[in-house]
Design a protein around this nucleic acid. Structure first.
Lengths: 227, 227
DNA sequence: CAGAATCCCATTCGATACTG
DNA sequence: CAGTATCGAATGGGATTCTG
């Protein structure tokens, strides 16, 4: 029998007071930050997380969820009746990690090595909208855009130069954008592929105020390449 | 003979268009981000890096430097005569990673699990000053503070609500702060240990305008704890 | 000093199978 | 569905040695 393993985040890698180093102790292991990313728009179930992180094994996901819970980044919760399912949800501190991921994503997008046409989870697309929208282009715009990405629904509310995104079905959206997967939307927002082509060949569907949806699609801008 | 290993960052972990995921491909391996941190205030030599990263082995440091060079984060350069020594220097893109580390550090400091009294490298202390200074407290202040931390020298210039930090010896600083190691300065700036005590017992030395140095020491604030 | 090369052990990972 | 258990393979990393 072991002598009670001390509370630890995977074993104290660095011995360093630097905040960056401590952040890496918590989020720096392989897959960890992507698990947090998938939880950033609300609670998820084990299988949903697994489906959104192609390549992660059940074992590693279990381990990461356990470590993140110990560290205080997320909590495990059982939904009330009649659902009775267990979900993982970020703590307040966990949600506070969004700017970290935004900065990392923004920095990475400055590299020509970044390929925006790889597969993409719905959550990571929706989060990228918050990172990449151009504040100068949204002056006076006031839209509610509903999203349905392969069955996962989100609401993006554009107004006051902000762009909050939440899960759910919009009541009376300005427009609704449906796509079978997030990559189609990446093509629309970032690669500038024409809407007509995506509608014809990739299963994109736009409902409601079409002109508003097109303006919305135009407010996103990848950062200038430095490398 | 191997068939020419393709250009790769340690083997493409994730298959994900998300910028955060690509950022992790570049910076997410153990030690990598701390190597970048140590280069953030200018070129360093192999032995200096090693000394600033207690626990890293020559092998790992060599590997990380190689991978970062391939990725375009840093370059290897030989200093002109008569120095003739090789140094590692961040590229423009590499320097652009500072906000990533700042956000990560700021986030980590919100946890009560963060221990600011662990050992600390001079560079990481100087970088933390840029992250943690309180803009509201520096209105109208206009100081040049020279630092000598165990022989490494830096100049911090406070003015216009900004706090650039560079390596070097200040010409005519408002004050100079000397300490045998960075932990003493962490005690001064973040733990609020009295100056007199640090001077008496920890080898802290303040030269020049003592009042200015004390005001300077008071502008740093750790973020509110969320966990 | 600045690494490259070798050796070897410990850890980690992914795949598969299993369970309540 | 939500994990656990197990196992073999790959990787990681420390220690040591060698070289210009």
């Amino acid at each position: 029998m072991e002598l009670q393993k001390e509370t630890k985040l995977h074993g104290r890698w660095y011995d360093d007071a630097c905040g960056t180093a401590f952040g890496l102790e918590v989020l720096g292991e392989r897959w960890t930050m992507l698990v947090v990313r998938e939880l950033m728009l609300g609670p998820r179930r084990f299988s949903g997380l697994r489906a959104s992180l192609p390549g992660i094994s059940a074992k590693v996901l279990t381990e990461r969820l356990g470590t993140l819970e110990e560290a205080g980044v997320l909590t495990r919760r059982t939904l009330e009746e009649p659902a009775q399912v267990q979900v993982y949800e970020l703590t307040e501190w966990g949600y506070a990690a969004e700017p970290v991921m935004q900065e990392l994503g923004r920095w990475a997008a400055m590299s020509s090595g970044h390929d925006p046409m790889l597969p993409l989870s719905p959550v990571s697309l929706m989060l990228s909208l918050r990172t990449m929208f151009d504040r100068r282009k949204v002056e006076g715009l006031d839209f509610v855009i509903g999203f349905d990405i392969g069955g996962e629904t989100f609401i993006a509310t554009l107004g006051d130069g902000a762009l909050p995104v939440v899960r759910g079905k919009a009541e009376a959206p300005t427009a609704t954008i449906r796509a079978p997967n997030a990559t189609v939307l990446a093509a629309l927002f970032y690669a500038g592929v024409p809407v007509a082509e995506l509608e014809r060949e990739m299963g994109l569907v736009i409902e409601g105020d079409r002109a508003a949806a097109m303006r919305f699609a135009d407010i996103f801008e990848l950062p200038e390449k430095l490398a």
